[in-house]
Design a binder for these strands. Structure first.
Lengths: 198, 198
DNA sequence: GTCTATACCGAGATAGAC
DNA sequence: GTCTATCTCGGTATAGAC
């Protein structure tokens, strides 16, 4: 794997510091602000170490993406095995930092093919998990006209969540409450009233 | 206005060529590939002319954004005054190049405040137009439980459209057909079967 | 592993000739 | 209005000392 280039030590402190710095800069200033010098400065190390550990900037981006995606995948898998899987997923999906980071990678992917295929694979993995869960939950219930198919439900939740978070980042909120109410009315019909917070 | 800096001539061929080049590069390679030199090369002019016409790169980005947003606004306003406004809006919103361009600007806005406020203002203008139209159309119909509020309907269409287009750009299509069917079932309930193409 | 030093490139921006 | 020339900065990446 390209992201495992550099020394064998996968769990070096320096390596982690560089990944943390990369993620922070992407969240605060966007991916275009990520450079070997800025990352090194933020991590408190020398810029040559970025190349020592990751080879090239593309590999640094990919390693950062994978670390974040793996964390989110575990959190969502946990949510989906709770008592109210759809409610829990809905809350997990609303994670602001993760969505912001994902959108930076999506933008980055427009002109970096290695990142692009990484995101594609990851997205398919998430979609698969979501659909398996939703299919089980909705089993036999799809007769009712106002309950969407598992596919529509998952894509509805994903689309709305990401779009609203994106708009919030711009200070926009017109109609958000009504949109959320619409989704949550659906969740209530399927899983009943939400019991406890996360 | 910052975007009107440079010579008084708003309709110069060179100016248009620079805007066209900027837009093309953003679509093909992402905003990070936009530089005065690359734009000038693509437009077939000298790079100093970019600064002569637009002052700074930020102003070039803003001018490019405004030109695209104004075009789209006119097209959507036209769609909303047709016989089946929601169907027409749904089709117009699915414009692939415009969505791709918008997403580049959204990514760009993360670290350029001038762009950010430009997008915010533009989005509010679109939302306002959409909501006024949807409110008129749904007037009195919101009693039915499976028809969403005007706000939810507009945000649903906007969210889903953008999300699906984004995924398509990555080669993802799992569940898309079902999601589209869900939205269009809603449109059929409100406006009936779609009559003619755009 | 970590550093210094450096090669090389392309970015934004401006001055001034034509 | 359009060009050449140039300044300055910060980027990627590598060689090599410690």
């Amino acid at each position: 794997m390209a992201s495992e280039s550099g020394p064998g030590a996968e769990n070096s402190e320096t390596r982690t510091a560089i990944l943390d710095a990369t993620q922070q800069i992407m969240l605060e200033e966007g991916y275009a602000a990520v450079s070997s010098r800025r990352v090194a400065e933020r991590a408190g190390v020398n810029s040559a170490l970025v190349y020592y550990y990751f080879g090239a900037m593309d590999d640094l981006f990919i390693a950062t993406f994978r670390r974040g995606a793996d964390r989110t995948f575990r959190r969502q898998a946990e949510a989906l095995s709770s008592e109210q899987p759809l409610w829990a997923l809905w809350e997990t999906i609303h994670d602001i930092p993760h969505t912001a980071l994902t959108m930076e990678f999506v933008a980055l992917a427009n002109h970096r093919k290695a990142i692009r295929s990484e995101i594609t694979q990851s997205s398919q993995r998430f979609r698969k998990m979501h659909l398996e869960a939703a299919s089980t939950i909705l089993e036999g219930r799809h007769a009712r006209p106002d309950v969407p198919s598992p596919e529509a439900l998952i894509l509805l939740m994903s689309s709305v969540s990401r779009f609203l978070l994106m708009e919030e980042a711009f200070g926009l909120s017109t109609g958000h409450a009504e949109m959320i109410a619409h989704v949550e009315r659906l969740l209530r019909e399927i899983e009943g009233e939400r019991h406890a917070g996360p």
